[in-house]
């Protein structure tokens, strides 16, 4: 079963082609990784996926629904969640309020009840999963980056997304935090959430991903399991530059 299907995605900025005819599928229930050198177009691909950017060409399907023409908030309603590489928290709200407002927004469009008890339950659960219970009253501008990434995750979790896009969740986290993060991802995945992950920290990617796509200069250059990718000379070349000598 396919949760997300991008076909023929092309994005041009002026004369520069940021994404060139990219096809990616994320199957339901998987943790899929997207890697590639700096400037390869990974964040652009995420922006296209959640609707902040319209592709020049190509179509996007979410489950069976064609979402190419949908605005970001409609895609959210379909069950698409996302975190950001450059943190996009709400600094005028506390940690808890950041998560709460997400739950409240969801309450407005979900079919379920949006009474305050329900919202509180959802928020508590998300804070529990992300180990943020004790930081609830802190202002998000005061917490370190590693924690802030968790707040973004918690904020997405209350939406109960079918597919979660994570944009470099481990950057700014220390090794301990990254390993905790990996555990959280695995347990979320066990509960049935599909995850699509852009990450530079290979220890995280190689540990949690079922399948990996590699992007270079806006084009897909490889896809496969972790072992396949690690042994793939094309990928190593992409990271280290052309063969020396």
């Amino acid at each position: 079963m396919t949760q997300l299907e991008l076909s023929g995605i092309t994005v041009r900025f002026g004369g520069h082609t940021a994404l060139n005819n990219v096809d990616i599928t994320v199957s339901t229930g998987s943790i899929t990784g997207l890697i590639g050198p700096n400037g390869a177009g990974k964040t652009t691909l995420f922006n296209v996926t959640n609707g902040l950017l319209r592709p020049n060409e190509g179509t996007l399907k979410f489950g069976d629904a064609d979402m190419t023409a949908l605005s970001p908030y409609r895609r959210a309603k379909l069950g698409l969640g996302r975190t950001f590489q450059r943190l996009e928290l709400f600094p005028s709200l506390t940690v808890r309020e950041n998560v709460q407002v997400a739950a409240e927004i969801r309450g407005e469009w979900s079919s379920g009840s949006n009474n305050s008890a329900n919202i509180k339950k959802n928020v508590d659960r998300a804070l529990e999963i992300t180990n943020l219970r004790d930081s609830g009253s802190k202002n998000v501008s005061e917490i370190p980056t590693g924690k802030a990434r968790l707040v973004e995750l918690a904020r997405s979790l209350v939406q109960e997304p079918k597919l979660l896009l994570l944009d470099e969740p481990a950057s700014g986290q220390n090794d301990n935090e990254t390993s905790e993060f990996a555990d959280i991802l695995r347990s979320l995945n066990k509960e049935g959430m599909s995850i699509f992950l852009v990450e530079h920290d290979m220890s995280l990617v190689m540990n949690v991903c079922d399948k990996i796509f590699v992007l270079d200069f806006g084009s897909l250059i490889a896809e496969g399991t972790t072992a396949e990718i690690q042994g793939n000379p094309v990928v190593i070349d992409a990271y280290l530059g052309g063969k020396s000598g």
């Binding site: 290979m202 220890s203 995280l204 190689m206 540990n207 190593i236």
Partner: peptide, 16 residues
């Protein structure tokens, strides 16, 4: 340094 590089980038001997 060249030998250490592939490790640093792709984490062939990943931590965790």
């Amino acid at each position: 340094l060249e030998d250490q590089l592939s490790d640093a980038y792709l984490g062939t001997k990943g931590k965790i």
